[in-house]
């Protein structure tokens, strides 16, 4: 019955980490593109466009990621008439999910820049793109870095859910190892520690950046 949990089993878990990271990175990049559109639509002058963006955000922030994953997975199957691989479905689902969050983070960062900064830039005779480029975006980018890093942590943790539809990343590898060794008391804590080792430094970085940026920009955050 069952293997023992040794170095090989541990290495198997380690080898699953790149998939967790790859999925997170892919979703972050895809989400950045989607998020940019959402942020722009969200601030568009047209009420219809803004409504669309808000609907998108509500949908993805108001439903479980797991459900988004299932709907994407089976939805792709419906569209293409064949059972798709887990990988594209998972990547697409997490991209759409990230887009909603990143879009909101970035919109918030741009809108957090006080209106007088726009006015001061306009009064120096700068055109709208130049106001954005020289004055607003550099400040907004700095404000947005900590929550973006914070979201990356959230995303890395969320990708564990891909295990449920069988995508082999760290959590799924843990499940497989548990099934093979019958040692959940060893395997799952190790999996947790591995996630912790990935996420904790990022969390600390986000906190550190936030404190530093708040100090230099004089931003007051409430939470």
């Amino acid at each position: 019955m069952g293997r023992s949990f040794g170095l090989n089993e541990f290495l198997y878990l380690l080898k699953a980490i790149p998939w967790t990271l790859l999925l997170s990175l892919g979703a972050l990049i895809g989400g950045a593109i989607v998020g940019l559109f959402i942020a722009i639509l969200r601030t568009a002058p047209s009420r219809v466009l803004r409504g669309l963006a808000i609907g998108y955000i509500e949908l993805f922030q108001g439903t479980p990621v797991l459900m988004q994953l299932f709907v994407t997975y089976y939805g792709l199957a419906v569209i293409f008439d064949i059972q798709v691989d887990a990988w594209p479905a998972v990547l697409l689902a997490f991209t759409l999910y990230s887009g909603a969050f990143l879009g909101e983070i970035w919109r918030g960062s741009i809108q957090a820049i006080p209106r007088p900064q726009w006015e001061a830039a306009a009064c120096l005779s700068l055109s709208l793109p130049k106001q954005l480029w020289y004055v607003i975006l550099p400040q907004a980018a700095r404000i947005s870095i900590p929550p973006t890093v914070g979201f990356a942590v959230q995303l890395i943790k969320s990708t564990s859910i891909a295990a449920i539809i069988g995508f082999i990343e760290l959590t799924r590898a843990g499940q497989l190892m548990t099934n093979a060794t019958f040692k959940p008391m060893i395997v799952y804590p190790i999996v947790a520690v591995l996630y912790f080792i990935i996420c904790w430094p990022l969390s600390l970085l986000a906190q550190h950046l936030e404190r530093r940026i708040d100090a230099t920009l004089g931003v007051k955050r409430h939470f």
Binding site: K157, S160, I161, I164, G174, Y195, W200
Partner: peptide, 8 residues
Amino acid sequence: RNTPFLVQ
């Protein structure tokens, strides 16, 4: 806060 809910 630094581990997935699923693993918990």
